[in-house]
Computed example of a mutant assay.
Amino acid sequence: MSDIDVQGTVAEGFEAVRDEFATAVDPQAGAQLAVYVHGRLVVDLWTGDGVAEDTLTGVYSSTKGAATLTVAVLVQDGLLELDEPVARHWPAFAAAGKDRITLRDVLTHRSGVIGVDGGLTADELADDRVIAQRVAGQRPYWRPGTAYGYGGFVTFAMAGEVVRRATGRSLQAHFEERVRAPFGLDLYLGLPEAEEGRFREVLPGLAGPDELAAFWANLPGPHSLTGIGYGLNSTPPLDQVAFLNARRVRALGQASAGGVGSARGLAGMYTAAVFGLDGRPPLLAPGTLGEFAMPHSVGGDLVTGNTHYALGFQAKGLRFPFLSANAFGHNGSAGSESFVDPRSGIALGYTRRRFSFDWSYPEHDRLAAAVHRAAAATS
């Protein structure tokens, strides 16, 4: 790809990250990259039409990192129990053989509940409460605990229902009070109307006719596990590009994929979780951090094929082998990426407005590696 016009700043020793950003990012993507190292902002870059330093866009499943962090804080407070059956708080969930599924099973994608027969409409998927009502009676798609598979749109509706019933407040309200507001993070599970002027719509991927034909020819069937996990079994199949471009989705802040934010917001959240930010102490105590960063589901994801999970988070130490074993975070459709490495001190956030037509984002590897090299050289 050709060089692009890059705005922003990098700290001394991180100039190579700017160079990598200029060559690795699709010129039409509209992207942001922010990196903290041990609590210090060292990379703050952006590029593309309609993208500025404070632009907000849909981060899709990077939202799951924010939702997981909220659950971790509540577990740390003693308000939630990871190994308690979900049905203890939510009796209707016990239907169809789900009585022994725990919150840990849900967070590690081992519950077998990745969608519902007949699918969920885009309007239903906007609202975690509606999703919870629909999945309560659903039979799991495999025996709980025997395997794992990604529930792209329903996982944190289930976790959120446990949060609501155990605490009397929504997961989104806890995120705002405990995570976003205290640290002033530009990351929202429920975008206020006052911030709408900074939101930029997500754009579809660009591809030629032959590339599109090949992509559609290899698309999983709507009633396959992959199709169910990604909401393709509804009528019509879910349009992910349109999903977060709907104000209702952004306003409700659906906890699996409805988050809106910036690269600074994502990187700042992970910095706040592990190292603290702007003089405030870290959100997670060492014991909580160790539990949630530990790999839980590894091997073969029945939905995605190759994703590994810690507790709620993706296991980024298995995704990027130059990171430490307990690095964790979460990526999202349209190409967002975010993670923290407790050992090296790196917390990275990356957003882009435009989907890749084939959902591949090779710049993630290049940017993460460039950041790691620079951080190692300056430590």
Rank of each mutant, 00 (worst) to 15 (best):
F21L: 06
G112A: 09
V154H: 01
A285R: 15
E176Q: 13
A92R: 12
A315L: 04
A272W: 07
P182S: 07
E15F: 10
P144L: 05
G227V: 04
N233K: 04
F199I: 07
R165N: 10
I228W: 03
G8A: 07
G30T: 09
G305E: 05
D301L: 03
G197W: 01
A213Y: 02
D210N: 11
R100M: 04
Y309L: 12
V25H: 02
A272D: 03
G305V: 10
T9V: 14
I228L: 07
D105G: 00
F215P: 00
V43E: 00
R143D: 14
R40V: 13
G39W: 02
N326T: 15
R354L: 02
D127T: 09
G30I: 11
D341I: 06
A334M: 01
L212T: 06
S344K: 00
L80Y: 11
P342G: 11
V10S: 02
P209S: 09
G265A: 07
P182A: 04
P295Y: 07
A67M: 03
M269Q: 02
A207M: 09
N233L: 11
A213N: 05
G50P: 14
V260C: 06
D278A: 14
G227W: 02
G168R: 02
A255V: 14
L125Y: 06
A368H: 08
E201Y: 06
L187S: 06
A72V: 06
R104H: 14
S379D: 12
A157E: 07
D54E: 14
D186L: 06
G259M: 10
A132K: 05
G168M: 01
E363F: 05
P204L: 08
A72M: 05
E124Y: 09
R40I: 08
T68K: 00
D3A: 15
Y141S: 08
F21M: 04
E177A: 15
R139M: 11
G8L: 04
P192D: 10
A194G: 10
R200S: 11
W142M: 08
A285W: 13
R198L: 13
T226F: 00
T155Q: 15
N331K: 09
T47E: 11
R18P: 00
T271F: 06
G290L: 08
I228F: 07
F183H: 15
G8N: 08
A369P: 09
Y350W: 11
Y350H: 12
V17C: 05
P182I: 04
G305C: 08
A67S: 15
G118E: 02
A122R: 12
